[in-house]
Design a protein around this nucleic acid. Structure first.
Lengths: 113, 113
DNA sequence: CCAAGTACTTGGCCATACATAGTACTTCCT
DNA sequence: AGGAAGTACTATGTATGGCCAAGTACTTGG
């Protein structure tokens, strides 16, 4: 039980939410997502992202099409399905509630009334 | 892959943060914590809380003393150790960063500049 | 003496994040 | 043409934590 590990645990589930959000803004492929996540200081590695995308695809939340690249192998460009959109809406609500609940606990003063 | 499950995954690690926060405000026992978490709409069940408290204790982040009760068996009253306090400080930073990172992804408009 | 309530414990299940290694395709350099 | 380097994706195994469900132990009241 150390800080680093807890950081990892805190990320669980949130990543899925962030990925869906990124995909919801337009068609992207894996490296695009990695860049954006890194920019937001949400560190993710390939070994986490690719399996997650596969899960999202198998669940019918996202779909992709192959697009040839001028530099390297073809890429999978992802976009949300209708199901993915409503799932994202549900996740957004869940996340907001969670943040709110956490705030209501952590913001309370040392000696509650 | 359903909403309920993702909700569970999102909770990971966050619970630990909330529990430590509650304990940091004064000596409490398990049912006190359950009440407070429930009030904050952070639903938790016994089977989650007790093992977590055991982990925190084994890691030296919290300690407890037995206190007899007038109605039922004795209770374990928990409080933070020094190590627990600094761990909580670290967790607070981690959580704030995570919320910030998530916000910077989700708040971005549909068509970034 | 047994039933009910309270407090805590334990074992097994599941899903995710990560490390690591591997495959396949393209381009560049010699 | 052939090999190295780079890019994109895949596969496998490990660890952790939340949850369900069943169980133990102590106290009080009929």
């Amino acid at each position: 039980m150390n800080l680093e590990n807890t950081q990892v645990q805190m990320r669980k589930g949130i990543l899925e939410y962030c990925i869906l959000h990124i995909i919801s803004r337009g068609e992207v492929y894996a490296s695009d997502m990695l860049d954006e996540l890194t920019n937001a200081r949400m560190i993710v590695v390939e070994g986490t992202l690719y399996p997650l995308l596969t899960r999202l695809k198998n669940s019918g939340l996202v779909e992709y099409k192959w697009v040839e690249s001028k530099s390297g192998p073809p890429r999978k460009y992802y976009k949300l399905t209708d199901m993915g959109s409503s799932f994202l809406a549900g996740l957004t609500e869940t996340w907001n509630e969670l943040v709110h609940s956490t705030a209501s606990i952590t913001k309370r003063s040392q000696t509650p009334a």
